[in-house]
Measured scan of single mutants.
Amino acid sequence: MKTQEELTEIVRDHFSDMGEIATLYVQVYESSLESLVGGVIFEDGRHYTFVYENEDLVYE
């Protein structure tokens, strides 16, 4: 089982391919040991929310 830090790094690596990240945040109250819920804001102003669970990243 991966730690929350490892899950965060996986998500950061994925989004870094889309541009320069200004902020990546995790909603700790919605996340667990198996899933990571949060959002990412890019330097150009784009903002996505995401759920990473079971090695699957869903964002909008």
Rank of each mutant, 00 (worst) to 15 (best):
E5L: 13
V37F: 07
G19Q: 02
V51I: 14
V37M: 13
G39Y: 13
V11Y: 02
E60R: 15
V28A: 14
D56R: 15
M18D: 03
D13S: 15
N54V: 05
G45I: 02
V51P: 00
M18K: 07
E20V: 15
V28D: 08
D44V: 02
S35M: 13
V11E: 01
S31E: 13
L57Y: 03
Y52Q: 02
S16H: 08
L57F: 07
M1Y: 13
L33H: 13
T8A: 09
G39F: 13
E5W: 11
L7Q: 04
V58N: 10
F42I: 02
E30W: 06
S35C: 10
H47M: 07
D44Y: 02
F15S: 01
V51H: 11
V58C: 13
Q27K: 14
S31Y: 10
T3C: 06
E5G: 08
K2P: 05
V11D: 01
L7T: 03
V26R: 01
L33S: 12
I21H: 01
E53W: 13
Y25T: 05
V37D: 03
E43W: 10
F50E: 00
L7N: 03
D17A: 14
T49H: 10
E6V: 08
E20T: 15
L57K: 02
K2G: 05
S32G: 10
T3P: 05
E6C: 07
G39A: 08
D13I: 14
A22N: 11
E5T: 09
G45P: 00
R46M: 05
D56G: 13
E20L: 12
D13F: 13
R46W: 04
S35T: 12
G19P: 02
V51Y: 13
L57E: 01
D13E: 12
L33N: 14
D13H: 14
M18W: 11
I41S: 04
E55K: 15
L24K: 00
V51N: 07
E60M: 13
T8K: 08
G45F: 04
N54I: 05
L57H: 02
D56K: 15
V28K: 14
V58I: 12
E6Q: 09
Y25P: 00
S31M: 10
V40G: 00
E34M: 12
V11P: 01
F15I: 03
Y48L: 09
A22D: 08
S31G: 11
G39R: 08
T49V: 08
L36E: 00
V26N: 02
I21L: 06
K2T: 06
Y29H: 07
E20N: 15
G38V: 03
R46H: 07
E30N: 14
L7A: 04
I21M: 04
V11F: 03
N54L: 08
S16G: 08
G19M: 02
N54Q: 09
A22R: 15
G19W: 03
Y29C: 08
L36R: 00
K2V: 05
I41Q: 04
G38E: 01
I41T: 06
L33W: 10
Y59H: 07
T49I: 13
G45Q: 04
G45M: 04
V58S: 15
D44I: 02
Y52W: 09
I10C: 06
G19D: 02
V11S: 01
E30H: 12
K2H: 08
E30C: 11
F50D: 00
V26F: 06
S16T: 10
G38W: 03
E30I: 15
T3K: 06
L57W: 05
V37K: 15
T49L: 12
G39M: 10
L36S: 01
V37A: 08
T49K: 14
F15N: 01
E60W: 15
H14W: 11
V26E: 02
D17P: 14
Y29I: 06
M18P: 01
F15W: 03
V51K: 13
V40P: 00
R46L: 05
K2S: 06
G19E: 01
V37N: 06
Y25I: 06
N54K: 15
Y48K: 02
S35H: 12
V58K: 15
Y52K: 02
E9C: 09
V40Q: 00
E53Y: 11
S35N: 07
S16Q: 11
S16V: 08
E5N: 08
V51S: 09
Y48M: 07
Y59D: 03
H14D: 03
L33A: 13
V40C: 05
E60C: 12
V37T: 15
T3G: 07
S32V: 12
D56F: 15
S32N: 11
T49F: 10
G39C: 14
G38M: 02
L7M: 07
H47N: 04
K2Y: 06
V40M: 02
T49E: 06
L57P: 02
S16K: 14
V26A: 04
S32F: 09
V40H: 00
I41E: 05
T8Y: 10
S31F: 07
L33F: 10
T8W: 08
F42M: 12
V40R: 00
I10Y: 07
R12Q: 05
E55G: 11
G38Y: 02
Y59P: 03
E5M: 09
D44F: 02
H47T: 05
I10D: 05
V28E: 11
Q27R: 09
Y52N: 00
V28F: 12
F42K: 00
Y29F: 10
D44N: 06
D13R: 14
S31N: 09
S31C: 09
S16I: 10
E6W: 07
E30M: 10
D13P: 04
T8N: 04
D13G: 15
A22F: 08
V58A: 09
M18V: 05
G19K: 02
D44L: 02
F42Q: 00
T23W: 11
Q27D: 11
F42C: 02
I41P: 00
T23P: 01
V26Y: 05
Y48S: 00
V37E: 07
Y52T: 02
G45C: 05
S31D: 09
R12G: 04
Y25G: 01
D44C: 03
E34G: 15
L7E: 02
R12P: 01
S35I: 14
E20W: 08
M18A: 04
L7F: 04
E53P: 01
M1E: 09
G45V: 01
A22P: 01
S35R: 15
Y59N: 02
G38P: 00
E5S: 11
M1G: 12
S16N: 10
H14F: 15
V58Q: 11
I10P: 03
I10F: 09
G39V: 12
R12S: 05
R12T: 06
Y48V: 05
G45W: 03
V11W: 02
Q27P: 03
G38F: 03
L36M: 09
E30D: 14
K2L: 09
G19H: 03
N54E: 06
V58F: 14
S35G: 06
R12M: 09
V37Y: 11
K2I: 05
F50A: 00
N54G: 10
L24A: 02
R12I: 08
F50G: 00
Y52L: 09
Y29L: 07
E9I: 12
Q27W: 08
D17S: 14
H14P: 01
Y52A: 03
Y48C: 04
N54R: 10
K2C: 06
V28H: 14
E60P: 03
L57S: 02
D44G: 04
D13A: 15
V26M: 04
Q4Y: 11
L36C: 04
M18H: 08
I41D: 03
S16C: 07
A22H: 11
E9R: 14
T8E: 14
Y52C: 04
L24M: 09
V28Y: 13
I41M: 09
R46F: 04
V51E: 05
D13T: 14
T8V: 10
L7Y: 04
E6Y: 08
M18R: 04
E6I: 07
S32M: 14
E43M: 15
E34L: 09
L36G: 01
Q27F: 10
F15E: 01
T8P: 02
E43R: 15
E9T: 12
L57G: 01
T3F: 04
F42A: 00
D56Q: 12
N54P: 05
Q4M: 15
V11L: 07
E60Q: 14
E9H: 11
E55F: 11
L7D: 01
I41K: 06
Y52F: 09
L33C: 09
D56W: 15
S16R: 12
E6L: 07
Q4I: 14
G45D: 03
R12L: 09
E34R: 08
S35K: 15
V26D: 01
I21V: 07
E20A: 13
S32A: 12
Q4P: 06
